[in-house]
Amino acid sequence: MNDLAAHHAPLAGALTDAVRRVIDSGWFVLGREVAGFEEAFAAYCGVPHAVGVANGTDAIELALAGVGIGRGDRVALVANAGGYGTTALLALGAEPVYVDVDEDTATLDPALLDRETFDAVLVTHLYGRLADLPAILEVAARHGAPVVEDCAQAHGASRDGRRAGSWGDAAAFSFYPTKNLGALGDGGAVVTASAGVAERVRRLRQYGWDRKYHQVTGPARNSRLDEVQAAVLSVKLPHLDGWNAARVAVAARYRAAIRHPKLTLPEVDAPGHVGHLYVLRCADRDALSAHLRAHGVAHDVHYPLPDHRQPVHGDRFAGLELPATERLCAEVLSLPCHPELPAEQVDRVAAAVNAFGAGTENWKGQPCTP
């Protein structure tokens, strides 16, 4: 699904120099590299503040805490985004309020959100697509609720000149290696236009300290982006827009090449969609998966089990029905989509997809190893 070796090969010298710079400095946590990346990433997102943290899930938790969410608060979110938001808000003792999605975009449906009672909204920009932020912000304002963006799959996506992370009261990013902007390990950030939110998150990421060994807020974490990852991300950030364009080009090639009556293809419409994942739909997904596996085509499912059906909840949400969410979770399948995927591999994947249901005797391509 990704080729991280090929992704990093053109940057090998710059990445080695960055890591060596950190080693030579003798400073490995919350130093100049983190401060420099925070400044650059905040500017990229179009906000004044970025706070580096240990990973994307911590970023969601600390962003929610930063806007005042805690035990017993009700947080509206979707249930088709892998469970990361649910994990974060449960760590805070908050209550999930699952809202169904727009079936065409797989993101939060603002009209259904307006029917709920909630203290905050966690908006996931899924697969690289921005959710309908203008409508969601309007609903949230009527309810007097802050909005936190989960931008883990949408680095650089924009609408009306505003990038992901610049719309809500705070936003969370993941820098997991396969993200559009990925580190060489785990990493994350909270971005915000609010100096107060930023200061609260800075304290919460390091024991609740306002100065060393002086705890003033909590519950807090030890969740810090380290100097090595910050240095790596600083090298990679200037390439992000080019990588996003390459992802969108892969998606466009799929759309032009795949012709199958049983499949629904996504609209990957830049700049509002940055092609983090290429996710099609098939009512007979298991058969399609078996077919692709037989022809050596890498694929995955993002995501097969909605949050409200996860075993961790027992029967807590047994009566909750989210029909669009549940249909999507039963049908979605992801094809390889990354900046290094050669055009010939895209065409081979598309040929394998088009041969689905036609019998192996009609397969004219070669095994794919994207």
Rank of each mutant, 00 (worst) to 15 (best):
V190Y: 06
F173K: 01
D169P: 12
R202L: 03
G182R: 01
D169I: 04
R163E: 03
S194R: 05
N180V: 13
V197N: 13
G218R: 04
E227F: 04
P177R: 00
R221S: 05
A220P: 12
G185R: 09
L225M: 09
P177E: 03
G144N: 13
R205I: 00
G156A: 05
G168A: 10
R129H: 15
A193Y: 06
H214M: 01
G144H: 11
A152P: 11
Y207Q: 10
Y213W: 12
F173M: 03
G187Y: 00
R205H: 07
N222L: 09
G218Y: 02
Y213T: 14
G187L: 01
K212I: 11
S194G: 11
A154M: 08
W209I: 01
G185D: 12
V201Y: 13
A141D: 15
D132C: 06
D160W: 09
T217G: 04
G218E: 04
I136G: 12
I136H: 10
Q153E: 14
R202A: 12
F173C: 03
Q215N: 03
R205G: 07
L126G: 11
L181E: 10
L184H: 11
A183Y: 03
G187R: 00
D210L: 02
R162G: 02
R200I: 01
L137S: 15
W209P: 04
P177H: 02
G144I: 10
A170I: 07
P134H: 09
L137A: 15
E149W: 07
P177Q: 01
I136E: 08
T217W: 00
G161E: 07
S166P: 12
L126W: 15
D150R: 03
G165Y: 03
A198M: 04
L133E: 12
V191L: 01
D186W: 02
A141K: 15
Y176I: 00
G196W: 03
D210R: 05
A195G: 15
W167A: 11
L225P: 10
V148K: 06
A135V: 06
L126P: 11
T217L: 02
S223T: 01
L181C: 10
A172K: 04
V148C: 09
K212Q: 14
W167E: 08
Q215D: 04
A172D: 08
A189H: 06
L181Y: 06
L184Y: 02
S158L: 03
R163Q: 06
G165Q: 04
S166D: 02
L133C: 11
R221W: 00
D150Q: 05
D160Q: 13
T178N: 07
G187N: 06
R159M: 13
Y207E: 13
D160R: 13
A135I: 01
A154Y: 13
L181P: 14
Y127V: 12
H214A: 09
R163K: 11
W209Y: 14
R203H: 07
K212D: 15
S166L: 02
G208W: 00
R163W: 00
R162Q: 08
L204A: 08
L126T: 13
L137W: 06
R200A: 14
V190S: 07
D210C: 10
D132Y: 05
C151Y: 05
Y213L: 13
G208Q: 04
R211N: 01
G188Y: 01
V190H: 09
D186R: 11
D160C: 06
P177V: 00
R142Q: 11
A152G: 15
G182K: 02
Y207H: 14
R224C: 10
V190T: 11
V197W: 10
R142H: 15
D150Y: 08
W209V: 00
G156D: 10
L181K: 02
D132N: 14
